[in-house]
């Protein structure tokens, strides 16, 4: 029984690896944490030579890839902060020309779970040999991708997948939004823990030094959020910390256009129209900064 079972599992594993060479569906992650992992692996194993990299939280993770310049990579993670993206850049030893740091949630810690899973010692090397070990190739993720690919074919929708996903999200009701906003106002009104501020300020300096050593430029940007949240203690303190680490004389900041142009679903995350509008704006800024360097 034990030998037979082991034999069957090895055969299944090898056949599945072989099969993966012949199938290609647009990846459809099962949840946001899987999306984070797929994105991280995509950067670590394939796109670590991208010229510009965006690091940030779920706010910038919403940015529409199809509207961003092809040479850029959005390494922002839902539920996390810019620290995860910065740590991945550091661990892969890559040196993008420009790193765009989203500054809204700099008091969050990097997620050890995500980093451990991406850089798990033995598995990290095995993933290069066996594609079946990559997150995007999980059998259920593949099944999910096939189902959604079939559904989108049925709809005969020609809009690119990512934009379609953003558009198809249902609008959030006003009463729900108010409930969520009230909770956020309460949470973010109190100042952040001093120990965390100190620790994260130190970490930011370390990353700044690393990027400078690698010759990367740093450009800062703040994602638009609900105007009732902008001047709450948490965000005011975040801006102050950023200024302390990245002197405004030396580091460029992308100033958001009129905040009132944008709507959010819960106070923090932009709704479908706004995220597309902001991505277009950010994309033009990325292109401008890239041209600026060439000049």
């Amino acid at each position: 029984m034990v030998k037979k079972t082991l034999f069957i599992s090895i055969v299944l594993f090898l056949v599945y690896n072989l099969l993966l060479h012949y199938i290609d569906f647009p990846v459809k992650p099962g949840h946001q944490w899987q999306e984070n992992l797929i994105k991280a692996e995509d950067y670590v194993y394939i796109k670590n030579k991208s010229k510009s990299v965006i690091v940030g939280s779920s706010l910038s993770a919403l940015l529409v890839d199809d509207l961003l310049p092809k040479s850029s990579f959005n390494l922002s993670f839902a539920g996390h902060s810019a620290f995860d993206g910065l740590e991945i850049i550091k661990r892969t030893g890559s040196s993008p020309e420009v790193v765009y740091i989203e500054t809204n949630f700099i008091f969050r810690q990097a997620d050890k779970g995500l980093l451990n899973r991406v850089f798990m010692p033995v598995r990290y090397s095995l993933k290069k040999i066996f594609p079946a070990l990559m997150e995007k190739n999980q059998p259920v993720c593949l099944f999910n991708s096939v189902i959604f690919w079939m559904l989108s074919n049925l709809k005969k929708n020609l809009i690119p997948a990512k934009i379609d996903e953003v558009i198809s999200k249902q609008p959030v009701r006003e009463d729900t939004k108010k409930l969520l906003l009230d909770i956020l106002i309460k949470d973010y009104s109190s100042p952040p823990d001093q120990a965390i501020v100190k620790k994260n300020k130190y970490k930011l300096k370390k990353y700044k030094d690393y990027l400078e050593k690698k010759g990367s430029r740093v450009i800062l940007f703040e994602m638009p959020i609900d105007e009732r949240l902008i001047n709450l203690n948490l965000f005011v303190r975040a801006r102050k910390t950023i200024e302390d680490v990245f002197s405004p004389d030396k580091y460029a900041t992308i100033q958001s256009p009129d905040i009132k142009k944008y709507n959010t679903t819960d106070g923090l995350h932009l709704d479908r129209q706004s995220v597309m509008s902001y991505t277009t704006f950010l994309s033009s800024e990325i292109k401008r900064h890239s041209t600026h360097k060439k000049i």
Partner: peptide, 18 residues
Amino acid sequence: PAIYGFMLFMIITNSGSP
């Protein structure tokens, strides 16, 4: 053996984050 072999295959390829 086929059922247990499949479960082992899924443990290797389809585990969630711990």
